[in-house]
Design a protein around this nucleic acid. Structure first.
Length: 201
DNA sequence: TTGTGTTTTACGACCTC
DNA sequence: GAGGTCGTAAAACACAA
């Protein structure tokens, strides 16, 4: 029985820094071990080929774990960014609602909003449409017709989500659960108030 | 010195080619 | 059958108390 085989059977023996360096170099060149490389490394290191095989297996496992850890951290950062952006949007919605109440209080108290704003913690799982609508001008208050409105629309595009606030003195039609938004060319103001690209930092 | 947490080594079970 | 991954035990190591 050789000393090496004796040691491998009786206790775990750590490789020296120089041995590890040689293995690392070889591993970085190719993380799979062919039979020739295995026997070559074993004789260079003065260890049994079996130990080289095991070192490669453990090294691959460590690399994989580190890679997963890196991916996890990246996803965590993206999640945090998305959550803070979502909070910002809620603040913006609240601000616009206040503004709307102020504008509309002289003629009508009615403020409508879709369930998008109130019931969804994550607006990505709802239809990409939100609105605030109130009557801020002359004319009757009601779901079918109004004059002078403020609306917030969220729309999905290929590159992300746009949030538009529209103010108009033209009439808006109310249909189903939301307003029929004004044609931009006819509205008094259609303002891009935000643009989010989920997945970007 | 010792208790404890982390890293490395080694192996068996199972899978794939 | 050779060599891969996965899960785990245990030795080796680092370090605070």
């Amino acid at each position: 029985m050789t000393m090496d085989s004796f040691q491998s059977q009786t206790r775990k023996k750590r490789l020296t820094p120089n041995q590890v360096m040689l293995l690392e170099t070889s591993f970085n060149f190719n993380n799979k071990l062919d039979p020739y490389r295995k026997s070559q490394l074993a004789s260079q290191l003065g260890v049994p080929p079996r130990q080289v095989v095991i070192w490669y297996q453990n090294k691959r496992a460590r690399e994989k774990y580190q890679s997963l850890e890196t991916d996890h951290k990246m996803l965590q950062v993206r999640l945090e960014n998305t959550v803070s952006h979502n909070a910002m949007l809620h603040e913006e919605v609240a601000r616009l609602k206040d503004e709307l109440r102020f504008l509309g209080s002289s003629s009508c108290d009615e403020v409508r909003s879709t369930n998008f704003i109130h019931s969804s913690k994550n607006h990505l799982d709802k239809e990409p449409y939100a609105s605030l609508i109130g009557d801020a001008g002359i004319g009757p208050c009601g779901p079918s017709e109004s004059m002078g409105c403020v609306a917030l629309r969220v729309e999905e595009t290929a590159s992300g989500w746009f949030h538009r606030a529209a103010m108009t003195s033209h009439s808006l039609q109310w249909k189903d659960n939301g307003p029929v938004l004004p044609n931009p060319s006819k509205s008094d103001g259609l303002v891009l108030i935000g643009h989010s690209l989920f997945g970007e930092n």
